[in-house]
Simulated scan of single mutants.
Amino acid sequence: MGKPWQHGTTESFNGKLRDECFSLEWFRNRIEARIVIADWRRHYNEVRPHSSLGYLTPLQMAQSLRNCLSIHAISQMAVV
């Protein structure tokens, strides 16, 4: 199981989900809950900048990491 302070990233995300989504919405059924949560998750990952990522969205950060890895792989092939 673990304790909350052992899982800081998860606890931080859960707190944001609770404060920014669950506390503001009333779900009439599971389908509505799925839709609202999916919209929130999409916004959290694709629109909202995160200070811990240098004010990039997680999607932008993933794309920049992929680009860096691709450039690194190409440069390594040129060395060989």
Score class of each variant (00 low, 15 high):
1 M>G: 09
1 M>E: 06
1 M>Q: 09
2 G>W: 07
3 K>T: 11
3 K>N: 04
4 P>K: 08
4 P>G: 01
4 P>N: 00
5 W>D: 00
6 Q>R: 03
6 Q>K: 05
7 H>V: 01
8 G>Q: 02
8 G>N: 09
9 T>K: 08
9 T>E: 10
10 T>R: 14
10 T>L: 14
10 T>H: 06
11 E>G: 12
12 S>Q: 12
12 S>Y: 10
13 F>H: 14
16 K>S: 15
17 L>N: 04
17 L>I: 15
17 L>W: 06
17 L>C: 12
17 L>E: 12
18 R>A: 14
19 D>E: 08
19 D>T: 06
20 E>M: 11
21 C>D: 03
21 C>P: 01
22 F>V: 11
22 F>G: 06
23 S>F: 04
24 L>P: 05
24 L>R: 13
25 E>R: 02
25 E>L: 01
27 F>C: 07
28 R>H: 01
28 R>D: 00
28 R>C: 03
30 R>H: 14
30 R>I: 09
31 I>P: 01
31 I>W: 06
31 I>A: 14
31 I>C: 08
32 E>M: 10
33 A>C: 07
33 A>Y: 02
33 A>D: 14
33 A>P: 07
33 A>W: 04
34 R>S: 13
36 V>E: 03
38 A>R: 07
39 D>M: 13
39 D>G: 11
40 W>K: 10
41 R>W: 11
42 R>T: 09
42 R>P: 06
42 R>M: 07
43 H>D: 13
44 Y>R: 07
46 E>V: 06
47 V>P: 04
47 V>L: 04
49 P>N: 11
50 H>T: 07
50 H>Y: 04
50 H>L: 00
50 H>G: 02
51 S>K: 10
51 S>M: 10
52 S>A: 11
52 S>T: 06
53 L>G: 03
53 L>Q: 00
56 L>A: 03
56 L>E: 01
57 T>H: 03
57 T>K: 05
58 P>L: 08
58 P>E: 02
58 P>H: 02
59 L>Q: 11
61 M>H: 06
61 M>S: 04
61 M>V: 01
63 Q>R: 09
63 Q>E: 08
63 Q>P: 09
64 S>M: 09
66 R>D: 13
67 N>T: 13
67 N>A: 15
68 C>R: 14
68 C>E: 13
69 L>Q: 06
69 L>Y: 06
69 L>T: 03
69 L>H: 12
71 I>F: 12
72 H>G: 15
72 H>D: 14
73 A>E: 10
74 I>A: 15
75 S>I: 14
77 M>G: 03
77 M>E: 10
77 M>L: 08
78 A>K: 11
79 V>A: 05
80 V>T: 12
80 V>H: 07
